[in-house]
Write a protein that binds this DNA or RNA. Sequence first.
DNA 1: CTCTATTTAAAACACTCGTTTAAATTAAAC
DNA 2: GTTTAATTTAAACGAGTGTTTTAAATAGAG
Lengths: 211, 211
Amino acid sequence: MANRSDTKTRILDAAEKLFAERGFSETSLRLITSKAEVNLASVNYHFGSKKELIRAVLARYLDVFMPVASAEIVKLQNSDETASLNDIFSALVEPLLDLNQLRTEGTRTFLQLLGRGYIESQGHLRWFITTHYGEHLTLFVKAVADSAPHIPPAEMFWRLHFTLGTVVFTMASADALTEIAAADFNEHNDIEAVIRKVIPYLSAGVSVPVN
Amino acid sequence: MANRSDTKTRILDAAEKLFAERGFSETSLRLITSKAEVNLASVNYHFGSKKELIRAVLARYLDVFMPVASAEIVKLQNSDETASLNDIFSALVEPLLDLNQLRTEGTRTFLQLLGRGYIESQGHLRWFITTHYGEHLTLFVKAVADSAPHIPPAEMFWRLHFTLGTVVFTMASADALTEIAAADFNEHNDIEAVIRKVIPYLSAGVSVPVN
DNA sequence: CTCTATTTAAAACACTCGTTTAAATTAAAC
DNA sequence: GTTTAATTTAAACGAGTGTTTTAAATAGAG
C-alpha cells in the first residue's frame, strides 16, 4: 500500500513549508509536487482538491496543539484561581514549542500557517477552524475574559482581535523581521524569543483600563 | 484631452475600492475595468502595468496623508516637549479622518489598502513606500522612541512591528469585525470608533516596561 | 477643414492555474 | 501465478490571468 516514504506525507511536508513561506494562493500545486518529487495529479488523488490539502496541512498541527493548549489552560485555572493575563498567554508557550519536536521549525511553521490562514481565508478555513476547534477557542477566550474582568465584553472582543492581528502579522512576517533585527541590532532571535517578546505587549494592551 | 470624467480617475476609483475589499492579487484587471466601465487595455495604456496601478492607488492617498501627518507630529513636538505615546498616536487621527473629505470612506479605504499592501507585498510596495515616504516614517518612529525612552531600540523595533500588525490586520478585516460587533454586541462602530479603540491598546503595549 | 497626436476599442497572445482523464505501473489478495 | 485493487504517470482540458497588438474613434492645433 505504501512505497518509499508515503506520497501523502511528502506532499504535506512540502506544502506546509511553501504555504508558510509564500501563502496559500501564491503557492501552486505544481511547485508543491515538484519540491515533493511526486506527480502533480497525486494531490487531487490523495486530497481531492487544493482547499482540502490546505485544511489537511493545518489539521496536522491543530490536532496536536489544540488539546494540549486547552489542557494547559485548564491546569492553570485549577492551580491558580486568579491567573493573570501574562500567565494565560505564557501557558500557550510550551504547547507551541512542543511543535518543534513534531517537525523541525514546527512552531514557526504552525504560527505562520495560522497567520496566512487568517489573512487569506475567504471563509472556508475560518469555518473549518471554528467548527473543528471551536470549543478550545471559547475556552481560551473565556479564560482571558475572566482574568481581565474590568474590560467589558464588547471591548474585549475588539482587543482580542487586535491581539490576533499582532500575532498573525508578526508570525507571517517573522522571517523578514528576524533578519532585519539581526542586521540592524545584531539581535539573533529564534521564534521562541519573538513569542516571549510579544506576550507582555499583548497583556498590557488587553488589560489597559478603558477611558 | 479628457472626455466625460477621465478614464484614469475612473480606473483609480474602481481599483482602490476593489483592492481594499479583496486584496491586490485577488482583484483582476478585468474586474476593475468592468466596474469602471472602461476598456481593459486602458489600464496598461495609462499606468503601464498592474503593479504601477497599485502604486498609483496608494500614492494618491500617501501624497496627501504623509505631509499632513508629519506636520501634526512636528506641531505636537513643538508645543509639548514631553508628548505621551497616546498624544503621538492621537495626532494621527485627524490626518486620517481628513481622508474622508478626499473621498467617501477615504479613511477606511486608505487603512485597508495599507493593510493589504503590507500583507501581500513581496517587496515592490514596501520599497516604493520606504523610498518615497521614508523621511516621514523615520520622523514618526523617532517621535515614538523619544516618548518611550525606557524602551531599548531593539525592543522598540519589535513593538512597532507588533503595532503595525495590529493596525494592518484590524483594518484589513475591519468590515467583517464591525459587522460581528453590531450583531453580537449591538455596537455600531464606524472607522473612527475603531481607531479610537485601538490607540490605548497600542500605547499600553508599546510602553510597557521590559521584564 | 485637415492633419496629427492622443485615447479608446476589440481581439489575440502567451502563460499559469486547478482539475480531470485514461493508460501504465505497482502492490495486495486469493 | 493470476486477478483485483490501489497508486503513479503523462497528457490534456478549460478557465483565468496580465499584457500586447492593431485598428478605429476622438480630440486639439494650425
